[in-house]
Design a protein around this nucleic acid. Sequence first.
DNA 1: CCAAAAGTGTTATTGATACACCCATGC
DNA 2: GCATGGGTGTATCAATAACACTTTTGG
Lengths: 223, 223
Amino acid sequence: MNNTNYPEYEQPAVTVDLVIFTVSAEKLKALLVKRAREPYAGSWSIPGGFLKLGESLDDAAVRVMHEKTGVKEVYLEQLYSFGRPERDPRTRVITVTYIALIPWQDLVQPESGKVTDLGWFDVNELPGLAFDHREILVYAVNRLRAKATYSNIVYGLLPVQFRLSDLQKIYEIITDHPLDKRNFRKRMLATGLLKETGKKELTGAHRPAMLYCFKKREYVLME
Amino acid sequence: MNNTNYPEYEQPAVTVDLVIFTVSAEKLKALLVKRAREPYAGSWSIPGGFLKLGESLDDAAVRVMHEKTGVKEVYLEQLYSFGRPERDPRTRVITVTYIALIPWQDLVQPESGKVTDLGWFDVNELPGLAFDHREILVYAVNRLRAKATYSNIVYGLLPVQFRLSDLQKIYEIITDHPLDKRNFRKRMLATGLLKETGKKELTGAHRPAMLYCFKKREYVLME
DNA sequence: CCAAAAGTGTTATTGATACACCCATGC
DNA sequence: GCATGGGTGTATCAATAACACTTTTGG
């Protein structure tokens, strides 16, 4: 024993892994990284990295987010910690996972042009994933679905200004249920979280839509 | 670098800490341990321990629970992972925290007879706590409050058989709101999660109450 | 017969759901 | 003028909330 009462035996490694969501082309998608090295070389995995000793868990999540997407200001929420002893074949690794939400419009190069080791995948058509990353991703999708129904979490998937039909579409994609347009609008406006911008959408061969924004871009429980 | 692609620099320590709840004497209480050693020697803290390399996070939680209460079969749920670099003054420690619920009646020696380094504290009258344990405890209470309103989580605080008034009292204590007796009973029976046992409470100078139990003692969402 | 907790229904209010047509624009 | 999505109101139904007295037992 040392005099600090801390164990001297080996400690597990700690990583921070992210399930980064966006919505595009009517699909809920997650960002995956193709692994370059063993184990699971060539497999897709969710992005992550080792926790550095000086940084908090949240800081590590922000760092990984920035490394993979170039974006810093996003919705981030700790999801769960996974730590089965066998989840990494080499050594003991505890992973603290996060959900991140990013508006499709904020991505620097949508559909990852020439970068082939990064890809956005429809969460309903996932490739084989390394480690226990499928379990993590499924857990994240369930959490996102649940929170969409009782919070304004989807603001993280929308640009600053949006049409009510954009908002409705996001809800429909995440929960996979169609919504009634009139009831949806009534309910959303009743929350008091939205504000008309006064501006109108210009493009499109149809009546232009009022653009709305969230009064505060922060997580709030609804209803 | 080694050939496993794992960092050779120092890893943080990983602990598993528990917020163990019970309800007694009309109060929601948490189990605290008086620290024997520095840092925070003499302060109260939530029970916990270092993760062993061969055990899962859940296994570690069960182990700590058993060590402190002598009880193994309890409701356990992972709460959150805390990892501010300065949260332990000596070295980097990530803690994965859990909530545990235990029926007062299951405790071997209620009000911890001669054991003075363990104590049950009203969550509204907490002593000074070591590390960031106050933050963790407050977080746990909020989670328990929230879940009480939309799940049957309170089964973990009740013995196998109980009166509907016991159930109501638990809800009132956790949420700190009085409930209407008739509406409460209607709503609870409507969930279909309860079953009459046929037995009746015997003690007491009043009409004996029907005893109920949960059809399944497992976590279910309500409403 | 008194104290103590158990048990039991109805009404009013509120929120949720279902549903169909006209409007403004670009081409 | 036609195709496209934008925008609006009412009626029904379901869930929730408010509310007070009778019953059974022990002492």
